[in-house]
Design a protein around this nucleic acid. Structure first.
Length: 258
DNA sequence: AAAGGCACCAACCGCGCGCCA
DNA sequence: TTGGCGCGCGGTTGGTGCCTT
């Protein structure tokens, strides 16, 4: 298959957008929407390729874009989500309303990565704090996850595959909150048994409200997800599933429905 | 004050995927 | 089934401003 060129290079402008171009693009999209990005610049009278227009709109001009610095809460959320999702910026951005993948990517590379590496360098090995706080009652429960191995992380692995959910707040129904940045110092490393064995004694009666996700009867969810083809065939659905669990209210005693 | 280095961020590039004819 | 097309994503680059020497 021969790929068509991204855009006609001849005569098309590149580089920073002028305010007039922004104005043209914004007013055109507000009037007509953006059905076809490739055709849009021609119809709008812009000397840009569709790709450039799309990027400008998505990353800068869209009305719901949140401008300004990231809050510490947003930054912590990014760190947590990055632990879960890796460099899947669009997936991370989907959980941060008003923030774009490009913006998050930039913040990660320029700020958060360094901060995490610095904290990793001074990392000490401690037992993880399993924190679940209710935004109204400030109830905090702690417990120790089973079948998890903890080791000191080196700087290269700290930001890639570890899955420390220990400080994820479940009390906010919209956003993951990470109230205890200190707990970033303890990165649990998941071993094989985590994925294949129940993380706890399944005979125990358990609810969402008193167990963290990875203490949840994992095999039960594995089975369910496999049945729904989400676990093997659709990583995004799987992550959304876990994200749903993380963000359930602390009061919930219901198991997630499928 | 000037030059070099660094950090930040907007924008570009190339690839892969899904849709459709 | 195949190939073309459009879109979205992640990695990378380049411009600009600030800081340090």
């Amino acid at each position: 298959m021969v790929r068509a060129p991204c855009c006609e290079k001849m005569g098309l402008k590149k580089g920073p957008w002028a305010p007039e171009e922004d104005q043209i693009l914004t007013s055109y999209i507000q009037k007509h929407g953006h059905g076809n990005w490739r055709a849009l610049p021609k119809q709008a009278g812009l000397l840009r390729c569709g790709k450039s227009c799309r990027l400008r709109w998505i990353n800068y001009l869209k009305p719901d874009i949140k401008r300004g610095n990231f809050t510490s809460e947003e930054e912590e959320t990014i760190i947590k989500l990055h632990e879960m999702l890796g460099n899947r910026w669009s997936a991370i951005a989907a959980k941060l309303p008003g923030r774009t993948d490009n913006e998050i990517k930039n913040v990660w590379h320029t700020n958060l990565k360094k901060r995490l590496l610095n904290s990793t360098n001074s990392r000490r090995v401690t037992k993880p704090k399993i924190r679940r706080s209710d935004s109204n009652s400030s109830i905090v429960t702690q417990s120790e996850p089973a079948n998890l191995n903890f080791r000191e992380m080196d700087s290269t692995s700290a930001c890639t595959t570890s899955s420390d959910f220990s400080s994820v707040t479940v009390g906010d129904s919209k956003n993951i909150k990470c109230e205890d940045i200190e707990s970033l110092e303890t990165m649990p490393v998941i071993d094989e048994s985590f994925w294949s064995e129940p993380a706890i004694d399944e005979t125990q009666s358990m609810t969402i409200s008193d167990q963290m996700p990875f203490q949840y009867p994992f095999t039960k969810y594995e089975e369910t997800l496999e049945q729904s083809h989400a676990y093997d065939s659709n990583f995004d659905d799987g992550m959304d599933f876990w994200y749903d669990i993380f963000t359930r209210t602390a009061d919930s005693t219901e198991l997630p429905e499928f």
